[in-house]
Simulated assay, not measured.
Amino acid sequence: MPVSTTQYLNSTYSRDMEARKPKSNLGKDDFMKLLTTQMANQNPLKPTDDAQMLGQLAQFSSLEQLTTLNSTAKTSNTALGAINVTSSVNYIGKSVVAGGDKIHKGSAGCSPVYYKLSENVASVKAHIYDASKRIVDTAVLSGTGEGEHTFTWDGVNAKGSLPEGQYSVGFEARDKNGKLIKVGAKVAGKVTGVTSKEGKTVLELEGGRSVNLVDIQRVEASKEVDEPEEGESAES
């Protein structure tokens, strides 16, 4: 199809304007052109100081190396993320323990929670919260000695069995003087999937929960969540 004069002029004008668009970044070729132009237009009676020129070259060299290093790091992080996701597939079907306070109540019972005391205390309570952050149950725990203990909520309060879903737990420990003692908590759950979010490898747990791969502290043989823990008990 023949091209009209108007179409040809418009096409030529578009290419010319595209070529005239200013660059947002200067590359090494642009830097060398600027340096060559500077040398060609300098005052012959007062040339650029050698030390100043060497300094400019050193700055450009450092900038180029940092740019290359940044590009290499991004590529490496992408590759490492893919490797982490691939290798983490081995976690699927296994139970993991990681820092957190979310528990899941399913048809087989509730997922266990591990709490750690830095010293012996007089009392420990576990407060169970629903999705609206309201306390739906409180359990008095028997594990009050220094170290790690396990608590598995029975999913029942004074009104009866609570619906299945996701809950959270907060621990209240006090010494013999009634002073609050800090309690560390970890949650457990079976891994159902692996995803990558914002460069981080995330393990998806039963009940819609998720934990970062780097936060995993222990991997355990898979077991039913309603199995009792030896030497531990809790009363609601």
Rank of each mutant, 00 (worst) to 15 (best):
P2W: 03
V3M: 09
Q7C: 07
N10H: 09
N10K: 12
R20P: 00
K21Q: 12
P22T: 07
L26P: 00
D30K: 08
F31C: 00
M32A: 00
K33N: 00
L35N: 00
A40P: 00
P44D: 03
K46T: 08
K46G: 08
T48E: 14
A51W: 11
L54N: 15
G55S: 15
G55E: 12
Q56I: 08
L57I: 12
F60H: 04
S62W: 14
Q65L: 15
T68I: 10
L69M: 14
L69G: 06
L69E: 13
L69R: 08
N70L: 09
N70D: 10
T72G: 08
A73N: 11
T75W: 07
S76T: 15
N77W: 10
N77P: 00
N77E: 14
A79Q: 15
A79V: 15
I83K: 09
V85I: 14
V85D: 10
T86L: 12
T86W: 07
T86K: 11
S88E: 03
S88P: 03
V89L: 13
V89F: 04
N90A: 15
G93C: 05
K94V: 11
K94C: 11
V97S: 03
A98Q: 02
A98I: 02
G99Q: 03
G100M: 04
H104Q: 01
K105H: 09
G106V: 12
G109Q: 06
G109M: 09
G109K: 07
G109A: 09
C110S: 14
Y114K: 07
K116P: 01
V124G: 04
V124E: 03
V124I: 05
K125V: 04
A126Q: 05
H127Y: 15
I128D: 05
I128H: 04
S132M: 10
S132K: 13
K133M: 12
R134L: 15
R134D: 13
A139N: 13
V140S: 10
V140R: 06
L141R: 09
T144I: 15
T144A: 09
G145W: 04
G147Q: 05
E148L: 04
H149W: 06
W153A: 02
A158L: 06
S161E: 11
L162V: 04
L162C: 01
Q166L: 11
Y167C: 09
E172N: 10
A173R: 06
A173I: 05
K176A: 14
N177T: 10
N177S: 13
G178K: 06
L180K: 10
I181V: 15
K182A: 08
G184Y: 01
A185M: 10
A185V: 06
A188G: 12
A188Q: 11
A188Y: 02
T192E: 09
T192M: 11
V194S: 05
T195H: 02
T195S: 01
S196R: 01
S196P: 00
K197Q: 10
K197L: 08
T201C: 13
V202G: 02
V202F: 00
E204G: 02
E206F: 08
G207W: 05
G208M: 03
R209W: 01
S210A: 13
V211K: 02
L213S: 01
I216D: 01
R218C: 02
V219E: 04
S222H: 09
K223L: 11
G231N: 13
G231M: 11
E232F: 15
E232D: 14
E232I: 11
A234E: 05
